[in-house]
Design a protein around this nucleic acid. Structure first.
Lengths: 222, 222
DNA sequence: CCGATTAAATGGGTTATATTCATTGTAGCC
DNA sequence: GGCTACAATGAATATAACCCATTTAATCGG
């Protein structure tokens, strides 16, 4: 056969990837078979192994493509004007929105990225790392602009943002509650910025403002 | 063959579960074979299917057992004396500690619980739910005691706690950074309680205290 | 103590599916 | 037009979960 044009190769590649994505999203990774994907993509089973290393590699490439789109979306939105708080609110909304729109892929994405241990699957780790770096830059900008307390470890702040976003999204995806993206993202930003502590004197107890000074700086240790 | 004593049955069950846990932890779920587990447990392959529905069920039972221990640990520690803040610090430390001690099982746990979609695997969801309920009670106590702002949605607060714990733990497990549990848990509690916002007038910008009143109550909508 | 009963345990057989590879087809080039 | 290099095929292979007919042995009634 021929040394086919680059375009044709790309098309074949894409059609296999598309078929795989649809299969994985509909039936999950395990329940999707190479045969089924091959049929859907109108190629032989063997050909898949010319374009992809194996079934799992097929999943990874699919997730990478999804992730690239995801990051692009978030970044374009974060690059917008406005102070840190505005950008935080916009980003949070976009982030949740993406989860809601592509719930099924997100599940696959999270499962894959979270499960792999670092020794195997460096590709997976790389996806995760890029994601984290984007958030990290975001936080660092916030610190630079003076919107985030500069004594905080930016990595911790990033994990805080990251964690609450993923958790809120996941709960709404796995539960059956519909997620009002606008309302929820606003609440998230509020609590991220202000913390949960009750600074008023509402309490029956006096725990609220207790040893604040000690906490803010001191390593009291336990 | 005999109707064996309940004790003997329990022992067999446990020995299979132990072998499975070791295999899964060392090689991961996929890479562990029933044959290998059967050999390690000194039983025939077929017998495993008398005690467990299938390989995946074996994983679930193993994770349930792990999770039961985990919750017990946390609960015993949270039940301790002290105000909300103290309990929060103690719980956070215990939580991180557990992650560090059983890193490999935690990875399996997270992967399994996070990946499954709600339609399949109700057992998995149940594990997750109990976990969430424990945290939820914790938060509600904090609100009742007046330590957490009562206008916050407790579910959101729970997701905040949950998310940052998991994310911090995961990053340290997957990266190679050692995690200083005491130091990190203190930082986490600080930021959870106080939020990230810079309330001082350090900033070159005026973003810090800008529309605070609007934020605290109003649905400004977007 | 014995043999009948019944459930535990075995392990070879079955099935399902990812992966391979010897073979076939064909696009581009001389 | 034939040559060649590579795309493409799909039957064959390998592996591993899972099934089931058969075997083994605890328990108990006599």
């Amino acid at each position: 056969m021929p040394k086919i044009s680059a375009q044709k190769l790309k098309d074949r590649y894409d059609s296999i990837l598309d078929a795989a994505q649809q299969a994985f999203v509909e039936n999950g990774f395990e329940a999707s078979s190479i045969t089924q994907i091959a049929n859907a993509a109108d190629v032989s089973e063997g050909l898949i192994y010319r374009y992809f290393e194996n079934k799992h590699d097929l999943l990874l490439r699919m997730l990478e493509a999804f992730y690239a789109r995801f990051v692009m979306k978030i970044q374009s939105v974060v690059a917008s004007e406005g102070d840190f708080e505005t950008r935080l609110r916009v980003m949070t909304r976009a982030h949740l929105q993406a989860y809601v729109e592509d719930a099924d892929i997100c599940r696959l994405f999270i499962a894959e990225v979270r499960s792999s241990n670092p020794n195997s699957h460096p590709d997976t780790q790389a996806i995760d790392k890029r994601y984290g770096m984007m958030l990290m830059r975001f936080v660092q900008n916030g610190i630079r602009e003076g919107s985030i307390r500069s004594e905080l470890d930016p990595r911790l702040v990033r994990d805080l943002f990251w964690g609450v976003l993923e958790n809120v999204a996941r709960r709404h995806l796995n539960g059956r509650m519909p997620l009002d993206v606008d309302v929820m993202s606003e609440s998230i930003c509020d609590v991220l910025l202000s913390g949960v502590e009750n600074k008023g004197v509402t309490s029956s107890r006096s725990s609220a403002g207790r040893n604040k000074s000690k906490r803010r700086n001191g390593r009291s240790k336990a």
